[in-house]
Design a binder for these strands. Structure first.
Length: 424
RNA sequence: GGAGGAGUACGGUAGCCCGGUAACCGGCCCGCCUGCUAAGCGGGUGGACGGGUGAUGAGCCCGUCUCGCGGGUUCGAAUCCCGCCUCCUCCGCCA
């Protein structure tokens, strides 16, 4: 959520932010208009309440006729207040709904552009492998190795579901363990999060006025939904808390399954592990001081790069343009890893700075020293290992002519020292 | 799922039955006293929002809200009534 006071001070900045995302800047002026109405009502009601409070202090001392008269007078005043209050309440909820529906303000360094073609490649690492045979995709490889079963997954749960089997399960766990070890070594605190959360937690993290049921699975008859990523419960971890500035940054490694409806993406990436309804992810999350959130962002991307490089996977870092930015984010880097089966670089990691957007909704502040006012923290999140997508890259880049796959050496300790997966 | 209890400012608590300016202790800040420190003595002490005056965020002044959250009753609610959330105890069920 954006800061209303900042919008009042510099509306043009926020209009141009919306334009950068390819959106209509109109809501900024709509918000200012409702806010003017709201403040006028508020001033009026506060004046009346001040009268009421004065009377309230006098009445206990009054006796007989004076007392009756004063109470009668206040009856009228109370009725007037009661009359005005609904108008104020509706202005407030209108304003709140509008503010909640607005996306985050993009960072100045975010490039202009309406879709992913305007994203900027920041750096590239590694060289895509050259095969002297026709490479297979991960579905063919995984099925041949007996570690992935999409057919049975579909029978049990429908498309975009799969069974993972044998060494596939070990491979997934190995990636998760490797990611956790990296984070623990960096001083992150691991958190196994709730995978069902209140819908306010999801909108708080991802934006929007109401729950986006295109992407989120809602539990019937309860105000609970399956998380789309542990970023959501991680953003709620310190909700309604005031943190000590000296404790920042607070860094967490979220460990969870993630669930996505993908209702709007019928027909897109239907094959394989790339876009599935359920996947495992190790997620980084930082609560940072606003003055240091930019460097924190670079640090988190750096860890993602270290992770992919340790696996020896060719990749590039991309800075997303305004039109490609998620609702709640001010700036996002994606890591796109080379996937021979898709014939190009595809997203395996994302790393974002949400600024104060999530913190304002979650009520997470910090205080500098014992006194003084509080301020909202900045929150940042980044994928360290989305195991499904990492497995795509590992299988497809490590494949050999006979359908076997050479595994990255770093995984050996987690794979019972296997260095290779063989069909059969 | 059933029964009972609790939630008060930074921390700990009183007030609630029986409606009328949120109190007390600690902490913290300022001052006094004192070779130093501590004790002792005196004073002060939050947050959110709206307005005024400064220079659109300092400071100062006025006001509203803030006793878990949201409603209701009332001239007036921490206090009475209703709904919800969280925690605790017991019972039931369960891996």
């Amino acid at each position: 959520m954006l800061d209303l006071r900042q919008i009042r001070e510099d509306p043009e900045r926020f209009r141009s932010g919306l334009r950068k995302r390819g959106r209509d800047p109109g809501p900024v002026d709509a918000a200012l208009e409702i806010d003017r109405r709201r403040r006028a009502l508020l001033a009026e009601i506060e004046r009346l309440r001040a009268d009421q409070n004065r009377a309230s202090a006098e009445i206990p001392a009054l006796k007989g006729k004076d007392r009756e008269a004063r109470i009668a007078e206040m009856k009228v005043l109370a009725a007037r207040i009661k009359d005005l209050e609904p108008h104020l309440a509706s202005a407030e909820s209108e304003l709140d709904g509008l503010l909640r529906s607005l996306p985050n303000h993009p960072d100045e360094t975010v490039p202009e552009g309406t879709d992913s073609s305007a994203n900027v490649v920041v750096r590239t690492w590694g060289t895509p492998p050259a095969f002297d045979f026709t490479p297979r995709d991960h579905v063919e490889l995984g099925t041949g190795l007996g570690i992935l079963d999409f057919e049975r997954g579909a029978r049990a749960s429908g498309s975009r579901f799969y069974y993972m089997r044998g060494d596939g399960v070990l491979l997934e766990t190995a990636l998760a363990r490797m990611a956790m070890d990296l984070l623990v070594g960096e001083g992150f605190t691991l958190l196994g999060t709730p995978m069902l959360v209140r819908s306010g937690v999801i909108t708080g993290a991802w934006g929007g006025a109401t729950l986006d049921t295109q992407q989120t699975y809602k539990v019937e008859d309860e105000d609970l939904a399956l998380i789309g990523t542990s970023e959501q419960p991680l953003a709620a971890y310190h909700m309604d808390e005031t943190l000590d500035a000296a404790a920042l940054p607070l860094r967490y490694g979220g460990v969870s399954w993630c669930f996505r409806r993908e209702a709007g993406s019928h027909g897109r990436d239907v094959r394989g592990l790339y876009r599935v309804h359920q996947f495992f992810k190790i997620e980084m999350f930082s609560y940072a001081h606003p003055d240091r959130s930019r460097e924190e962002h670079e640090y988190l991307v750096g860890l993602e790069e270290r992770f992919v490089q340790a696996l020896g996977l060719p990749h590039r870092v991309v800075l997303l343009c305004g039109g490609d930015l998620g609702l709640g984010m001010a700036k996002t880097y994606d890591i796109e890893t080379w996937m021979p089966g898709r014939g190009g670089y595809s997203e395996t990691h994302s790393c974002s700075n949400a600024g104060a957007f999530q913190a304002r909704r979650m009520g997470t502040r910090f205080r500098e020293g014992a006194r003084g006012g509080s301020e909202y923290v900045h929150t940042l999140n980044g994928t360290l290992a989305a195991t499904g997508r990492a497995i795509i890259a590992i299988l497809e880049n490590g494949q050999q002519a006979d359908g076997s796959v050479r595994l990255p050496e770093v995984l050996a300790p987690y794979m019972r020292w296997q260095t290779e997966l063989r069909p059969g």
